[in-house]
Each structure stands twice: as structure tokens, then as C-alpha cells.
């Protein structure tokens, strides 16, 4: 035993010498990271450049002067504006459905520990693991065949909700798992009705998550393309409209929208990350 306790001193001597190696590989890793970020950001930068380029087709290389024309034209484009309106309607509908559904699923699942719970869980998260177009297809078929409802805004709300509610549910479950289950019991024990406990204890606890989940549901719905493509029928959202114009690559207006999207993303991402950091 004594001999062994002496050994680490010797070993740690060799480690220190060894550590110069990994430092070199750390630099390599940093270099790789830099390269990766160039790979991730360069294409987006081209999109931004083309948005301010006077050239009539989106181009980052054929510079024909600075212009804000493509931004100015956006409000005049009725199809874009109409699409934006559709997107907002759909996203609001998705929030209104996803939050109650996600909450209900989370409440059931956190209280069901048996194998029934596992089956229910698998069913409720399955939409996340299913390709978006399949969700679009099934929603479109189902509502037309059973209710005579043609694909449109309403079917899109249903298609989005089917998987966005799963995301919301997972967020609520994570939050509920951090809740001391005896909080609700304590409320009941003090003579409160279950409804009173729910309103006064459970909901306030979940409120921050309800807000973030609403935000996530909004973004997921607003940005969705693959599911919407099938579920929307002859109507359109901002994103499907952008998609169909991208296929033709006709006007830098889509770059202008892209710049707005990227700007919003940057603002949200930075504030969110900084807020998360402050909380930690």
C-alpha cells in the first residue's frame, strides 16, 4: 500500500510532460472550429450581401451598387403580406392548441409510471420522429376523408400542432420533473381544492415554461415548410411562398426577407443565450 501511494507522484511527473501534446491538438481543434463557423456563416453572408445588391437577380458577386429597393418592395407584394398574415393566423392557432395539449400530456405522463405510461409516451412523442411530409400527408388525407375538410389553413394548424404539441409536452415534462411533487400534496393537505392548487401552485410554477413553449411553438409553426407544403393545399404561408419563389430564384426580395429573418434570429439567439447565462 505504501509503495503504491508513492507512485502517483512519479506518474504525475510524466503527465506534465505529456500535456504539451494535447495543447497542440487543442490549437488544431480551435482551428477546426473556426473553419466550421466560416462554413456555417459564409453562405448566410452571401444571402445578406445579395439583399443589398442592385442586381435584378440574387447575386453576391455581381455587385451593381447598394440599394434598399428589395426591402421597399416587400410591403407592396400582396402575396407576401397575405402569406405573412396566414402564417400568423396558423401560428396563433398552433399555440392555442399545443399549449393545452402539451400540458395535458405532461400532467398525465408525470403521474403515470407504469408501462401504460411508456406506451402513451411513445405515442405522444412519435410525431417528432416522423418526417414532416408524412404528418402533412396524413393530416390532409384524414380531414378530407372523414370531415370533408379541404387542405388549408385549418388543416395546417392541425398538422403543425400534432408535432409541436409534442415539443411543448417535453418542455413541460422537464419542468414538472424539477418540481417537488410534494408541493401539490402540501397544497391539498392544507385544505385547498385540486383546482385551487392547480391555479395557485402548479400554473405559476409552469408559467415561465408556458411562455417559452409558446415562443417555440410560434417559431416552429412560422418556419415550417415540409409539413405545411402538403397540409396547406392551395393556400400559402409566408414560408411556402418564399419556397416557391426560391425555386425560381427570381428576385432579391427573398434575400431581403432572409435578412429580416436572420436579423430576428440573431436578436433572439443573442438575448436568449445571454439571459440563459445570466440565470446560470
Amino acid at each position: 500500500m505504501t509503495a503504491a501511494t508513492d507512485m502517483p507522484g512519479v506518474v504525475s511527473g510524466t503527465i506534465r510532460r505529456r500535456k504539451t501534446g494535447p495543447d497542440w491538438s487543442g490549437a488544431l481543434l480551435n482551428g477546426y472550429l473556426l473553419l466550421f463557423f466560416v462554413y456555417m456563416f459564409l453562405p448566410l453572408i452571401f444571402v445578406v450581401i445579395a439583399a443589398f445588391n442592385a442586381a435584378p437577380t440574387p447575386s453576391a458577386t455581381d455587385w451593381q451598387g447598394f440599394t434598399l429597393r428589395w426591402f421597399m418592395e416587400l410591403p407592396q407584394d400582396t402575396r407576401f403580406i397575405q402569406g405573412l398574415w396566414h402564417s400568423l393566423i396558423i401560428a396563433s392557432g398552433v399555440i392555442c392548441l399545443s399549449i393545452p395539449l402539451g400540458l395535458s400530456g405532461a400532467f398525465l405522463l408525470t403521474r403515470l409510471q407504469s408501462s401504460a405510461g411508456t406506451i402513451l409516451y411513445t405515442i405522444l412523442v412519435s410525431p417528432i420522429l416522423v418526417p414532416g411530409i408524412v404528418l402533412g400527408v396524413t393530416t390532409m388525407i384524414f380531414w378530407r376523408d372523414y370531415f370533408g375538410l379541404q387542405a388549408g389553413l385549418l388543416t395546417t394548424v392541425f398538422a403543425h400542432t400534432s408535432f409541436i404539441a409534442s415539443y411543448c409536452m417535453l418542455m413541460f415534462m422537464a419542468r414538472l420533473q424539477r418540481q417537488d411533487p410534494s408541493l401539490e400534496e402540501a397544497g391539498l393537505d392544507l385544505g385547498a381544492t385540486p383546482l385551487f392548487v392547480f391555479r395557485r401552485v402548479t400554473l405559476p410554477f409552469l408559467m415561465p415554461t408556458i411562455l417559452t413553449a409558446s415562443g417555440l411553438a410560434f417559431l416552429q409553426s412560422f418556419e415550417n415548410y415540409n409539413t405545411t407544403f402538403f397540409a396547406i393545399g392551395s393556400s400559402w404561408t409566408l414560408v411556402t411562398e418564399i419556397g416557391s419563389r426560391m425555386r425560381f430564384g427570381l428576385s432579391p426580395m427573398i434575400n431581403a426577407i432572409g435578412v429580416i429573418f436572420i436579423a430576428l434570429t440573431v436578436i433572439i439567439a443573442v438575448t436568449h443565450t445571454l439571459m440563459a447565462r445570466k440565470r446560470a
Binding site: D180, S182, L183, E185, A186, G187, D189, V201
Partner: peptide
Amino acid sequence: TALIFQSLALF
């Protein structure tokens, strides 16, 4: 009855 929980369960 009133119960005092192991975790106290203060709101």
C-alpha cells in the same frame, strides 16, 4: 391533519 413534508414543500 396537516403534514410537514421531508422536503418541507414550501411554495
